[in-house]
Design a protein around this nucleic acid. Sequence first.
DNA 1: GACTGTGAAGCCATTCACAGCT
DNA 2: AGCTGTGAATGGCTTCACAGTC
Lengths: 209, 209
Amino acid sequence: MKIYKIPEATVMRLSIYSRYLYQLAGDGVETISSGEIARGVGVSSAQVRKDLAYFGEFGTRGVGYNVDDLYGHVMKILGLDKMWNVIIIGAGKLGSALALYKGFVKRGFNISAILDADQGKIGTELEKVVVEPMDVLAERVKEHNVNIGIITVPTISAQEVTDKLVAAGVKAILNFSPRVLNVPSDVILRNVDLSVHLEVLSFKLDYQG
Amino acid sequence: MKIYKIPEATVMRLSIYSRYLYQLAGDGVETISSGEIARGVGVSSAQVRKDLAYFGEFGTRGVGYNVDDLYGHVMKILGLDKMWNVIIIGAGKLGSALALYKGFVKRGFNISAILDADQGKIGTELEKVVVEPMDVLAERVKEHNVNIGIITVPTISAQEVTDKLVAAGVKAILNFSPRVLNVPSDVILRNVDLSVHLEVLSFKLDYQG
DNA sequence: GACTGTGAAGCCATTCACAGCT
DNA sequence: AGCTGTGAATGGCTTCACAGTC
């Protein structure tokens, strides 16, 4: 077990393995091999073993992995053995959809607050959370000990919102706006551009098909 | 100019460059260097040049690239010089958000139809499009010459929906459900798992910070 | 016999560095 | 002088293949 540099692709796959293991555990499966996981999620068995090997030895040679144990290990590795508090900035279609997305809650992400600059959206109720104005940002971050900010505002205000999140002490940001954001080096930034995926399909349809 | 195997990462970056070039064109910028594009989107200048080099020579040595020309070339490369017809299956929060997402329309993706199995959602109006029942799937695909299917249904029905899309002749699928889907080799499949991104942040917060 | 864990090999993407133009 | 286009070098991820274990 040697922790040095973990490929991001490995982390993404672990997240996928964990959901598959959860399903298996629910189905009552007790033991599973790397080959079966591989088939279940669409990668190679060597890949599964290599990914896990970054973090330790979780299996038994000749046998495989205990599903419950491995699930626990992977969740721990991903930091999902605890609650993360999340604030969403931007209560448009995407922000609202994310706020209501059951998948996040199920994995330990708690939507602490959702803010919007638009007066018209403030007060709207999304399940447990009510849309609030931007000026409560710092207060809510402190109050709920928010770790992660999700940005779903229009491109134009994305950097401004980012600066506010950083100033409030948020240490990780998931950015859905199609803009390059500047953050201090101690803040973890991740960009998701939904258009990119459709455009890769467009390219491939043209190019291959 | 040699077309062989284009890295998927290159295609994704081209999609990002194109949005930056669009912005520049709107700002009236006429010429730009690979270094400036690089800074604008957060990659290296050699990367920009290499990505473009897969498809031809679009710049002038000593000068740079003409913004309008390069934008046109990149859009053409991505297959975005034409309209693509899209069907969305699943009118939940995410499906609805995607159906209403302006970013898609702006890039030439036309939401032809949105379907759902839930009787309660059928008839709901999302902008121009009305939610329809699943049994019109094949009909709508034919009628609108649909090229791309977006799956935002619960995990349990994802494969069934996929099979219907494939049977109807859809050649590319964007899957938002966290499940491995089986498709024939001539169908292009792309998976997007929104939870993965949050979980990578969770991992990094734990591991680095 | 089956399956894990892992060094070594292979492969692919990114970066370097410079020749070639303007 | 400035910037592109590109072969060569580098770096990193994936696959191979097998020793180790049950």
